[in-house]
């Protein structure tokens, strides 16, 4: 609260008082009143005016300055009312009450939205569990009646499965509640599950899946990690080169404070300009536009999940040569990760 602006605001009453003073002065002169009385009156009048002005300024200053300062410094400025003292002047009380009422009605409004979102998320999760039952049935049907289903059907089924998974993990990655569990997980097992999931496409597209001797254990949620790896392997399969002998190599580097899992392919790679943006939501890049339709959600969700689990994920690539994904698990910092 600036004193100059406050003064400017009070200008009308100041002018009014001054004109009142001038009228009185003229009257004093007309009645030929002693000049010493006029001086005394003038001094006391202006003293009164100044003190009224200052009192009202300081009274308001402490309240408004606190309010403005706290609004600026709180990261959730809507909580400001909780941090300031209730004012003791009428205007301030009015403002305080108004802010309180606005806040309350906004909170109610937000609450109804958040309830709606939670409802929606719960419905989606339930729906996903439901849709998995017919997908399972179809999977087994295809297995039981190989003569009626061909590989193409199974491939489409796999695609449905993957898209359903993406929705599930998108919902989960946005949930403020914790629905993951950090455990000691054998990387070997997770890699095996992902490999088995993609076995048919890998064999059909003649991509060699090379896994060096991996017996490392990391702290993670195995289901989430499985999803993350699945997105990466899916991309490697999708963006393979048509000409060379394709491979996907999975390796582990063990360091004193971290375990690094790398997935390398010799696919078409990612253009340098697209590289910094591959984790952005709905970013498809040049490759995504070249190849079949891409949603640009897979890596975005993978990154989100990694952040929640406390892992780091990075991509290194050279266009036309290779793509290498790093997932970094920190070691012995269980509580830090779990938090």
């Amino acid at each position: 609260m600036k004193i100059s602006l406050f003064f400017k605001d009070k200008m009308p009453s100041f002018i009014l008082s001054t004109s009142f003073y001038l009228i009185t002065l003229l009257m004093f002169l007309a009645f030929k009143i002693d000049s010493s009385l006029i001086i005394v009156f003038s001094i006391s009048f202006f003293l009164l005016l100044l003190s009224l002005f200052l009192i009202s300024y300081f009274k308001k200053k402490s309240f408004y300055n606190q309010l403005l300062f706290n609004i600026e410094n709180l990261d959730k400025s809507y909580l400001v009312l909780e941090t300031i003292n209730k004012p003791n002047f009428y205007e301030g009380k009015l403002l305080y009450q108004a802010l309180y009422d606005i806040n309350k009605s906004m909170s109610e409004n937000i609450k109804s939205f958040s309830l709606q979102t939670t409802d929606f998320k719960q419905y989606i999760e339930m729906w996903i569990h439901e849709i998995k039952i017919p997908i399972s049935s179809l999977n087994i049907m295809a297995h039981n009646h190989k003569d009626k289903f061909d590989k193409k059907t199974l491939k489409q089924l796999k695609k449905i499965e993957n898209y359903v998974d993406q929705v599930l993990y998108y919902v989960r990655s946005n949930n403020p509640e914790k629905d993951y569990l950090i455990n000691e997980v054998e990387l070997n097992k997770v890699i095996m599950n992902v490999a088995l999931k993609n076995k048919d496409s890998l064999l059909e597209q003649k991509i060699d899946f090379i896994v060096s001797n991996i017996n490392n254990k990391v702290y993670t949620d195995s289901k989430w990690l499985e999803f993350i790896l699945n997105q990466i392997i899916n991309n490697s399969i999708k963006y393979k080169k048509e000409t060379t002998n394709s491979y996907i190599k999975v390796e582990v580097i063990e360091e004193s404070d971290k375990t690094i899992l790398t997935i390398t392919d010799n696919g078409i790679g990612i253009p340098t300009i697209d590289l910094p943006r591959v984790f952005e939501k709905t970013f498809t890049g040049n490759n995504g536009r070249l190849k079949t339709k891409s949603t640009g959600m897979g890596l975005f969700i993978a990154k989100n999940l990694c952040n929640k689990l406390g892992h780091k994920i990075n991509i290194e690539s050279k266009e036309g040569e290779y793509t290498k994904v790093f997932i970094i698990f920190s070691k012995n910092k269980y509580y830090e990760v779990a938090r």
Partner: peptide
């Protein structure tokens, strides 16, 4: 079809011999 680590850990601790998720 409940594909969460919590359910798997719970089931195994209740004495399941294996845990497979649909599909």
């Amino acid at each position: 079809s409940k594909n969460t680590e919590v359910d798997e850990v719970l089931s195994m601790s209740y004495g399941a011999d294996d845990y497979i998720t649909k599909p």
